[in-house]
């Protein structure tokens, strides 16, 4: 079954509009000062309305899966899917793909990296910008990590 991002959806549209601007946003409770994911209208802990907040894009690779060609009819060629925990919200996980093919770098759980935005296109439908996790390379310096994503 095909599902492309719906920019006008009240709960999930803001995530995809931000992604189109190459920004990673999640819903946040100001009173509790923590992320609530997946999005909903109100904080499950205190009941306050949630708002969207931009994150730095840095995070840890909670886990991943190498999807063989043909398993997912929406994405017919092989790809790697990941769960990423943002540094500002280590208790949540954002679903995304990996930015590079795994052969380029050995993956391990909890490895740090950052989100950049890549075009995804399913078997049918228009391409869209989506967050993708890029592990830091061993020779990355702290200075490199501060470069703007993109």
């Amino acid at each position: 079954m095909m599902n492309t991002p719906q920019l006008d959806h009240p709960l999930t549209g803001p995530f995809w509009k931000a992604a189109a601007r190459q920004e990673l946003q999640v819903t946040w409770c100001g009173a509790c000062n923590h992320a609530v994911w997946y999005p909903r209208a109100n904080c499950p802990d205190c009941g306050d309305p949630l708002h969207w907040r931009a994150l730095s894009g840095e995070g840890l690779l909670a886990s991943w899966c190498e999807v063989a060609a043909g398993l997912n009819p929406n994405f017919p060629t092989a790809y790697t899917c990941a769960l990423v925990s943002p540094v500002e919200a280590p208790h949540i996980r954002i679903v995304m793909q990996l930015a590079n093919s795994p052969a380029e770098k050995a993956l391990s759980c909890d490895m740090p990296g950052r989100v950049r935005f890549i075009p995804l296109q399913q078997a049918a439908g228009e391409p869209y910008l989506a967050p993708a996790f890029e592990p830091y390379h061993d020779d990355d310096t702290a200075c490199d990590k501060q470069l703007a994503p993109g």
Binding site: N3, H9, T12, F15, C65, L71, N72, N74, L83, M96
Partner: peptide, 16 residues
């Protein structure tokens, strides 16, 4: 929410 935040990323179907 799964349709909007998982399927478009390719986190689907269940084996994934």
């Amino acid at each position: 929410l799964k349709a909007h935040l998982e399927v478009p990323m390719g986190w689907y179907p269940q084996p994934v």
